[in-house]
Nucleic acid binder design. Structure first.
Lengths: 232, 232
DNA sequence: TGTACATCAGTGAACGCGCGTTCACTGATGTAC
DNA sequence: TGTACATCAGTGAACGCGCGTTCACTGATGTAC
């Protein structure tokens, strides 16, 4: 709309990406299979060439399809990445939510709290590593504004659930501060996963250990705040 | 080399990017000016269209140059991004190193330590925001493997300097643990900057405050470790 | 202070490639009766 | 249980665009004498 007035810009590069989501989901079995094959292939290729060199044509070639077949379901490679990213986030979220529901945050000591958190982190890392092209998906989630919503939505959902639990267990703590805290620590845990995935020569266990101490000490402090500091 | 044996792959997509660094730096004044104009323009365009839509042709057009002029200094857009990223990292590092040299880590209380750290973080964020296309450069540093070395080199240099200082001030603390800690917290501070830049509607001050508490509490714990825990 | 010359810096024009996208079409699949 | 038909799923072939890159060339700039 109003295309005639936009003369200076190169005709289509003006705004954001032309389209985003998957077009139509398949209804029959054959179509559903194709849909999955496309995504699987995209994950494979992502791991091989990275998301910059990933093209719809390349996916088609590898998947044994012609472009219009892919184009039927996905308008462009960003839709592919978005779907893959969504699935990775879902897989991660599931583990975190399960951990939360089964009392991941309750611990008798700081040491136990750190240990439980560390196990969760280890699981998250393992899931991400096992996901085809997982490292590249994490990068894409950072780099492509189209995908950022996927990550922040996932993070905020997890952070919200965590907030509810912490609020219930620590009614005296400042809710406002806890809200920032849950979002921040969730983000930091994800950032630690990225760090481990990016630099495989570093010792994952050490990093997991330390990030969990950081987070554990921080929450201990936050939930102890109200009864004013003893000495100092 | 051995190109004839690599038949299956599409002829050039085999390995990593074809080349990386800036080609030749200009020697005369005119050339130096052009070099800078190219980078400035690239930063501008980065802020406008992002790094995926950034092309050498686009930079030339905006800078009033023909492609071979740009090509004289930069083999491709990655070289542009690398140079920009390098400069941003240098600007950040300078602030951190100055802060360290002027006793940023010495504080009489945890509160003071947090406050000093918070001021540093605020500066880093301001610098990044003021840098043309700064947010996109941060994304590119994450997303493009070619650039990762730039970030890790910067981070490890800063972490190393911090480690030396902490070691000197806390000879009893575990050096191994401190080494992981300095790298981790440096990375986390950068991640917090990214978080703030990505989501401008969030309150920067709150996030800075909390990340600094996290880091401050953590270091307090680390440097108090040796004299075994009192109770528990 | 002036001139000659080597080198630096940038131009103009063109190229091949491959990416995203579309068109009219054929074949497969489920469903109604 | 069989057939007709609407719709879904995928093909084959082609297109325009613009990106990265190169070539032979002209003009600018510093330096040696």
């Amino acid at each position: 709309m109003a295309r005639s007035t936009a003369a200076k810009t190169p005709s289509k590069t003006t705004g954001a990406a032309p389209s985003l989501d998957t077009k139509s989901r398949p209804s029959r079995r054959r179509g559903k299979d194709t849909f999955e094959v496309i995504l699987t292939t995209a994950g494979e290729l992502l791991a091989e060439v990275g998301f910059e060199r990933l093209t719809t044509n390349l996916v088609c070639e590898r998947a044994g399809l012609t472009p219009p077949a892919l184009y039927r379901y996905f308008p462009n490679k960003y839709a592919l990445l978005k779907e893959l990213a969504h699935r990775l986030m879902e897989a991660q979220d599931k583990v975190v939510l399960d951990w939360l529901e089964s009392g991941g945050t309750t611990a008798a000591s700081l040491e136990e709290s750190v240990a439980k958190n560390r196990d969760l982190q280890k699981q998250i890392n393992a899931i991400t590593r096992a996901f085809p092209g997982g490292d590249w998906i994490l990068r894409a989630l950072r780099a492509l504004p189209v995908l950022q919503e996927v990550r922040t939505t996932s993070r905020d959902m997890v952070a919200q659930r965590l907030l509810e639990i912490l609020k219930a267990d620590n009614p005296a703590a400042s809710e406002d501060r806890l809200r920032t805290a849950t979002r921040l620590t969730t983000q930091m845990m994800y950032a630690a996963t990225e760090m481990v995935l990016e630099e495989p020569d570093q010792d994952e266990d050490k990093i997991n250990e330390e990030i969990c101490w950081m987070v554990g000490l921080y929450y201990q402090h936050l939930t102890r705040q109200p009864p004013a500091p003893p000495g100092n």
